[in-house]
Design a protein around this nucleic acid. Structure first.
Lengths: 198, 198
DNA sequence: AGGTTAATTATGCAAGCGTATAATTATGCG
DNA sequence: CGCATAATTATACGCTTGCATAATTAACCT
C-alpha cells in the first residue's frame, strides 16, 4: 500500500548525459548571471532535475563550476581549430583567424561567460591551471601553423620568431574577440584576417 | 544611568564623503567578486561603517550599484581625457590613445570591474543608459579631436569621415584595453598609438 | 551647558544559499 | 515476475543575503 505521492516522475539517464546537461545549464547561467548567480537550484531547474542530483554527480558546486569551465575552454579551442581547414597552410591560418573572431566562438554569450568566469579564475588555483593549459595549447597549435606558413613562404622558420608571432597573433585575436562579442557591430572579419596574415 | 554598552564609536561625516566612501568600497568589491559578491555587509565593512548606513544613503543596493557604476564610468572618461594634453591636436590625440591603453585606465582592477558590471548592465535599463551616455560622450570628444587633426593636416574634415574614424578608433582602443588589462604583457603602447594616428 | 536632531549603530526578519541525508522509484537481472 | 541497486527526489539544517526598524549618540545651535 504505497502512498501515491505527487512525487515527480523521472527517467534514469547515463552519468555522462546528466553531467553534460548539468554543465550546459551551468554555463548558460554563468553567462547570464555570473558564477554567484548560477545557484545550485537555478542550475538544477534549467537542467530539469532537482538540486539533489547535482551533489550526486559533483561533490560540490565548485567542482561543477570547474568542470563547466574546463569543458567550455576545451570546446572553444576545438571549435576554432575545426574550421581551420584548407589546402595550404596559409589558407588554414586565415580560416583559423576568421573563425576566432566570428560566431559562434565570438558572441554575446561567450563574452558573458568570459566575464562571469574572470574573477573566479583569478581566485582559484585549479581554474588558473585550466586556463593556462588551454591558453598554451591554443598558442602552440597556432605557432605550429605559423611555422608552416613561414616555411612554405620560403623563409627559414626561426623558432623564436614563430613563438613571438604566435603570441602577437593571439593578442590580436583576443582583442578582436572582445570587440566582436561586446559590441554588436559586425565588421569585416575577412579583411582583418588578411591584415594579420600579410 | 545610561548603560555603557560596547556600542561602536563613530564620527559623523558629510553625506558626500560617506557616499563616496561607500561607492569606492562598492567598486573595489565588484572588481574582485562581481556585483553579487559585493554584499551589503562586505561593502559596509570595507567602508568602515555598519550595514544600516547604506540604507540611510541609498534606498537599495541596486541604487548604490548604479551610483558606483555612474561614478566609475565618468571618472574613467575624465581620467583619460585629462592626459590628452599637448601643443598640437595630433599630439593630444596621441596622448589620449596612449592614456587609453595604459594604467590606471587599463589594469587588472579596471577589467575586473568591467567584467563584474557586464551582465548587470545587460539586464538593467538604467545601467544601459549610463553606459550609452558615457560611451557616446567619449566618442563625441574623440570625434572632435580627430576633426581637429584632419583639419590641421590640411584635408577638409568631412563629418561623416570623422564619425567613422572615431568609431573605429574607439573599437581599437577597446580591444587593446582588454588586451592590456587581462594579460600582464606590457607591450609598447606608443607604437600602437602611432599606428592608429597615421 | 543642555536640548535637538540627524547620523550611525544594533537587532531582527523572511527568503535564498550550499550542503547533508533520508525517502522513493525506475531500471536491469535472475 | 520479484528483487536489488543505483538514480533521483524530497526534506531539512545552518548560514548569508537584502531590507526594515528601533535604539543610541555625536555634533550643532542658542
Amino acid at each position: 500500500m504505497t502512498v501515491q505521492g505527487d512525487r515527480r516522475k523521472f527517467r534514469r539517464e547515463g552519468a555522462d548525459q546528466r553531467k553534460e546537461a548539468l554543465v550546459r545549464a551551468t554555463l548558460s547561467l554563468i553567462a547570464e548571471e555570473g558564477v554567484r548567480g548560477a545557484t545550485v537550484r537555478a542550475i538544477a531547474e534549467r537542467a530539469e532535475v532537482t538540486q539533489g542530483l547535482i551533489r550526486h554527480y559533483f561533490s560540490s558546486k565548485e567542482e561543477l563550476v570547474l568542470a563547466a569551465y574546463t569543458q567550455h575552454m576545451d570546446a572553444l579551442t576545438e571549435q576554432t581549430f575545426a574550421k581551420a581547414e584548407g589546402a595550404s597552410a596559409k589558407i588554414r591560418l586565415a580560416a583559423l583567424l576568421v573563425a576566432s573572431v566570428t560566431p559562434p566562438v565570438v558572441d554575446a554569450a561567450s563574452v558573458g561567460l568570459w566575464a562571469g568566469f574572470l574573477n573566479h579564475v583569478r581566485q582559484d588555483a585549479r581554474m588558473q591551471e585550466v586556463h593556462a593549459r588551454t591558453y598554451h595549447g591554443f598558442r602552440d597549435r597556432l605557432e605550429a601553423l605559423i611555422a608552416e606558413v613561414l616555411a612554405q613562404d620560403g623563409g627559414a622558420a626561426v623558432p623564436r620568431d614563430c613563438r613571438r608571432l604566435a603570441i602577437a597573433c593571439n593578442a590580436v585575436i583576443d582583442g578582436l574577440w572582445l570587440e566582436g562579442g561586446a559590441l554588436p557591430d559586425a565588421f569585416g572579419a575577412g579583411e582583418l584576417a588578411a591584415i594579420v596574415v600579410q
